[in-house]
Amino acid sequence: MLQAFFNGMSGLFAFSKGLDNVSNNVSNMNTPGYRGNDTFYRSINGQDGQGLGAGIAGTEVRTKAGETRQTGNDSNAAITGAGYFVLHNAQDEVFFTRAGQFVVDKDGYLVESVTQNRVQSIDAAGNLQDINIQSQRTLPPKPTTRVEMVGTLARSGPTESSHQINTLKVFDASGSTHTLTVKFEIQLVPENSWQVEVVDAQGVILQTGLITFAANGSPLAGFNTISVPLTANGATQNILLDFGTPGSYNLASQVASGPSHTLGAKVVDGSAVAGLSTFNFDEKGIIKFTYSNGEKRDGSQLALADFADQRALIAAEKSLYRAPDSLRPQFGRAGEAQFGRIQGGYLELSNIDLAQEFGDILIIQRGYQASSRVMTVSNELLEQLYNGTRGG
């Protein structure tokens, strides 16, 4: 009878521990990246095989992935498939998580927003390092080096024998803009030629030259480009006016007659200082930067880690996991080997299933009630025995 009493008590302790675990799962049902735990019970036996009640064998992490949800924040990321994000803190500790709530801190480091641990990238050699986008916040200015002249010049017709392209904006090495005007005057000698004059906003002539076309209207070799010197801030740069490949019609051409000239100018390169507009992650975890001038650049690539036995991971606070010394992580990149792909702008939710948790609660409740009843009956029998002995 005494053993039955203690067996019932061990059941109460075991089921209360199980309820603690279920309550923790339920309370974290809305925690991004949280993975629930299952409680496992074990029987306790003496050396002679006598049953001594029940205890907790331990808990095990549920490795099933949670659902993903779009957040509208491009710096968030979720993993579809195997893998964990890799984090590094100031104490040189390494953590792993499925919660990709990433933000950029004041120093330009990509960090996990809850813990402020730095997110790790992986380079071509497989080395891990912090991700810092400070140097990618702006693009330096670039001078204009080439302008494509696209369209036609009409040799005869109702239009005048001249043509003018106004407000051609180019950039110098400091990113400042300069407005140029390109003037065309028909020439009789040599045949099929045009005098070109490039003037700046103050009316200063920067360059003059001759453009000549072949009989078929395509640019003539040696007369299909004009180099325009532009001096700004004490430095001179050359801007090439390109009328196209000789013998082809890829850019400019001449027609015998037409209602009007259609020749225009397309600035191929050059830009002012461009600020970072947005950044996000592609499916390989590569950071994609987009700048105010429309230019796009690639940044670091997120590192992922995988383990031979995910259930051996040690749960830490804030949806983080540690790897025990006996479990070595395998690092890699999204979309390679066994690793899953990255969903930029998404977060993985917890993998808690409330239906399962409520089912476990009912089982625990019944077990707790039964164990309590065993203790009550054992106590009544002991009391009856005591009363019977006292009465004798």
Rank of each mutant, 00 (worst) to 15 (best):
L2Y: 07
L2A: 13
S10R: 13
F15Q: 11
S16P: 09
K17C: 02
N24C: 03
N24V: 04
N24G: 04
N25D: 03
N30H: 10
G33T: 03
R35F: 13
R35S: 13
Y41W: 04
Y41R: 06
Y41P: 06
R42E: 08
I44L: 15
I44Q: 09
Q47I: 14
Q50D: 04
L52G: 11
G53D: 06
T59P: 02
T59C: 10
E60L: 12
R62S: 12
K64R: 14
K64G: 11
E67C: 04
T71K: 04
G72P: 12
D74S: 14
A77I: 11
I79K: 12
T80C: 03
H88K: 05
F96H: 09
F96A: 12
Q101F: 07
D107M: 13
V111C: 05
S113R: 15
S113Y: 03
R118L: 05
D123T: 10
A125K: 15
Q136Y: 11
P140E: 06
K142M: 05
T144M: 01
T145Q: 13
E148W: 03
M149P: 06
G151H: 09
T152D: 04
L153N: 13
R155A: 14
P158M: 01
P158Q: 05
S162I: 03
N166I: 05
N166R: 11
F171M: 00
G175M: 07
V182P: 10
F184L: 00
V189G: 07
N192G: 06
N192R: 12
N192K: 15
E197I: 09
V198P: 15
Q202W: 00
G203W: 02
L206W: 09
L206Y: 03
T212Q: 14
F213S: 00
A215Q: 15
P219A: 01
A221R: 10
G222L: 02
T225E: 13
I226C: 00
P229I: 00
T231Q: 08
T231I: 06
A232I: 07
F243M: 00
G247T: 04
L251M: 12
A252Q: 02
V255Y: 05
A256D: 10
A256Y: 11
G264Y: 03
V267Q: 09
V267R: 10
V268S: 09
G270A: 01
A272T: 09
V273G: 04
F281S: 06
D282N: 15
I286C: 07
E295D: 05
K296D: 13
K296V: 12
G299A: 05
G299N: 04
G299P: 01
F307K: 06
A312N: 13
A316P: 13
A316L: 08
K318Q: 09
L320Y: 08
D325I: 08
R328C: 10
P329A: 08
R333G: 00
R333D: 00
G335V: 02
E336H: 10
G340F: 11
G344L: 09
G344Q: 12
G345M: 08
Y346A: 05
L347W: 15
E348M: 02
N351C: 01
D353E: 15
A355K: 03
L362V: 15
Q365Y: 15
G367W: 08
S371N: 13
R373C: 06
N379V: 01
L382V: 14
L382E: 02
Q384I: 06
Y386L: 11
G392S: 12
